[in-house]
Design a protein around this nucleic acid. Sequence first.
RNA 1: UGGGGCGUAGCCAAGCGGUAAGGCAUCGGGUUUUGAUCCCGUGUACCGCAGGUUCGAAUCCUGCCGCCCCAGCCA
Length: 562
Amino acid sequence: MSEIESRDFIRQIIHDDLESGKHEHIVTRFPPEPNGYLHIGHVMSICLNFGISEETSGWTYLRFDDTNPSRESEEYVAAIERDLCWLGFDWGDRLTHASDYFERLYAAAVTLVEADLAYVDSLSADEIREYRGTLTKPGRNSPHRDRSAEENLNLLERMRNGEFAEGEYLLRAKIDMSSPNMNLRDPALYRIRHVTHQHTGDTWSIYPMYDFAHTMSDAFEGITHSLCTLEFEDHRPLYNWFLDQLKPSHRPRQIEFSRLNLAYAITSKRKLSALVEEGIVEGWNDPRMPTIAGMRRRGYPAAALREFVKRGGVTKKNKLIEMGVLENCMRENLGDESERRMAVLRPLKVVLTNYPDEKVEMMEAMNHPGRPEMGTRELPFSKELWIEQDDFMEDAPRKFFRLKPGGEVRLRFGYIIRCDDVIKNDAGDVVELRCSYDPDTRSGTGSSDRKVKGTIHWVSSEHAVDASVRLYDRLFTEVNPNSAEDFHAVLNAGSLETVSAKLEPSLAELKPETAVQFERLGYFCTDSEEHSVDARVINRIVTLRDSWSKLEKQAMQQQGKT
RNA sequence: UGGGGCGUAGCCAAGCGGUAAGGCAUCGGGUUUUGAUCCCGUGUACCGCAGGUUCGAAUCCUGCCGCCCCAGCCA
């Protein structure tokens, strides 16, 4: 253990800036555009920005980057605030909008025009593209580039007054049409848009572009470090150009980091939005979605999500993080925090032939094997039980130590039973097991130390409560669906399976959004929208680690080869 | 074929001229009334490749290769 925890490159810069006295406080911002729900990629940015200000006793603004009214909405701003709160971050009274600065932004634009650093163009969108040149060919100056400041001012004012149609005029920075950096070829500053803005209503008919609005908003808020993703690296010269020309009293510094990509998941708002609109998932908060709302509904604890992002690190290298890392964070957190319960997902009937017909015993069960302070509960035990179909095998391999004909197994917190008969239907499916129990092996009694290899879970059928349980799997079959030509082609058809499960009676009245472990199966969470005590709906968060299924897979592969 | 980035084990990631941390995964083993947890142990990383500088390079220099981003009046 070294005394100095190694810092990522951004925290190193910030540490140095504090050390050198360049800044007294660190001010960051999280600037989502309210045009969709936040996803796992945003979680990283959120944790970075809010995390850094927390660590340095600075502060962070939540700033809605609402400069494009044609695709933004109130629904999204509400969802973003909700998600941020749930994740555990607090912006206090520092909730702002880029639109809060529209007047100041306009004044800054006027300043640029007056300094002959911006002009009103009247080329069409197509012409502008044509004039811009290509990656390898320089662009050409617009024929309107040399309008007088007076004329530009007049035109800009009339743009603001709504005198022109959309696309008729455009305010552009006057930089360098031959720059090898496309962002410097006279980028657009303001475009005309006759649209009602979700925050400013109809007061504006021109709206600033991202680069201009974002840079100046950072400056207005005294942001010290403006952290963004790699694709904006090319924009930094433009960011700095605005600061150089307009000389605001605060000069923020933009630093870029690589985004977090999760294997088998999509993190593109456009595609996520398509999944919702095409009805491929049930909504932005479908438990299969990598959105914060979806992961929350799935049952992922916020703390586990934060831990996951922390493990990813902060660098400039493109990364694709394995699902297993995410799943492990969930298992670690839930393993410590959640109570254990018994539930049977795919029930198989077991009748204990030597158990008295009407008898019911109450068996004591620990709520958490590692945390006795979490207490115990009682499980009713009776003649007729449900066990998991997977826990019985007629022709079992040597290493299968669950139930098989003539074999013995321990019922967790119950007795050891032996399988005497297998009953099948006409189709040949196993529909019932006739077993006998050993009365001397009751769990917890002194004479219960007889060992059997396997222990399986069960539920008394008379006392069981029903539930609809949804088993989720990855939404895509491709590791990196982001780069697939068409994501529809790599959708996982089996991403959702719903089963009718039997639960132990203590689970009858669970509140929505409660996570528990179903022993030997995984972690599950009652659905926040559809679950009620009358109609239980439960989502599987993640399975337990399962070394048996691993062995099974290996065996299958070997069989396939030989 | 312009510009900007990035390349350390399967996936992340330390390292900042002195002879390759750590996590996850993998594979062994122990404990276990969850095949879970827990506990031990487990890696020949040609540090993208090739040269060079140096007593010494993942770290400095040169060249090359690979991958990502940029031609919205999106962010």
